[in-house]
């Protein structure tokens, strides 16, 4: 599972998927201004699995939202390959999300009135070249739970449905916001395995946000956040498979 450091560097040079340049985000509540991001320069490379680590309020979710086209930066620039996200309007951002991005959320965000298969179909209905919902669910080990509703699934299963939903469109990037945050460690690890599997199998550029330091062990790179800034970027010399992680 471990990767050669020079090989990583070579691939970095080959393809940068995301590049941010002095990105800031200020929330204006009327009374106070909160600087969620205070100038972030970051690159994410094709095929890598990056873990964005930091305490709550450090700005990592804000950055993920901006990378995923859910939110606009207050200043600075953001590129997805040649596409400057920071210059896109809402309509173009919607297009971008529809075509390129898969999201996994802490609280799964499944639609309770739709079965597992239908939750995935929600995405495949509008994607350009999706896999079949059954196929996506099989990839996360849920081929036997297709017709179950969210209420009939465990937390880990629900999160795997969410992953299936995210990858069914064959996205180039997979953005995961605290994917294990609501889960116990055993099911959390199953979820991480699913994410790792997707990254390996499809080479999907993956960013995982977490405040759980143990998860950093599975990453190619670990990017630490503190007070809206990147405090440290470390390359993992030896990656550990999720099954060997404990917390």
């Amino acid at each position: 599972m471990a990767m050669n450091r020079s090989a990583m560097k070579a691939s970095h040079a080959a393809e940068t998927v995301f590049r941010t340049d002095g990105v800031t985000k200020v929330y204006d509540t009327g009374e106070v201004q909160v600087h969620a991001l205070a100038g972030v320069d970051l690159q994410l490379y094709a095929g890598e699995l990056a873990v964005l680590l930091g305490p709550s309020g450090s700005g990592k979710s804000t950055l993920l939202n901006i990378l995923g086209g859910l939110d606009h930066a207050s200043s600075g620039k953001v590129w997805f390959r040649e596409l400057e996200l920071s210059s896109l309007n809402d309509r173009a951002l919607t297009r971008y999300r529809r075509d390129h991005v898969g999201f996994v959320f802490q609280f799964y965000n499944l639609v309770p009135s739709l079965s597992a298969k239908e939750n995935v179909a929600l995405v495949t209905d509008i994607a350009r070249d999706p896999m079949r919902p059954e196929e996506a669910l099989e990839l996360v080990g849920l081929a036997h739970r297709l017709d179950h509703f969210p209420a009939e699934l465990s937390g880990g299963e629900q999160q795997r449905v969410a992953i299936a939903r995210a990858i069914a469109k064959r996205p180039e990037i997979l953005l995961c916001d605290e994917p294990t945050g609501a889960l116990d460690s055993k099911t959390g690890i199953q979820v991480l395995e699913a994410i790792n599997e997707i990254n390996l199998r499809f080479g999907t550029t993956t960013a995982v946000i977490t405040h759980n330091a143990a998860i950093r062990k599975m990453a190619h790179r670990v990017i630490r956040f503190q007070d809206g800034r990147i405090s440290d970027v470390a390359i993992n010399e030896t990656r550990v498979p999720p099954s060997d992680i404990e917390w």
């Binding site: 859910l70 999201f103 609280f107």
Partner: peptide, 11 residues
């Protein structure tokens, strides 16, 4: 959150 999800997935 479901609306957010729909939008995040490109609706």
């Amino acid at each position: 959150s479901q609306i957010g999800l729909l939008k995040a997935t490109g609706y």
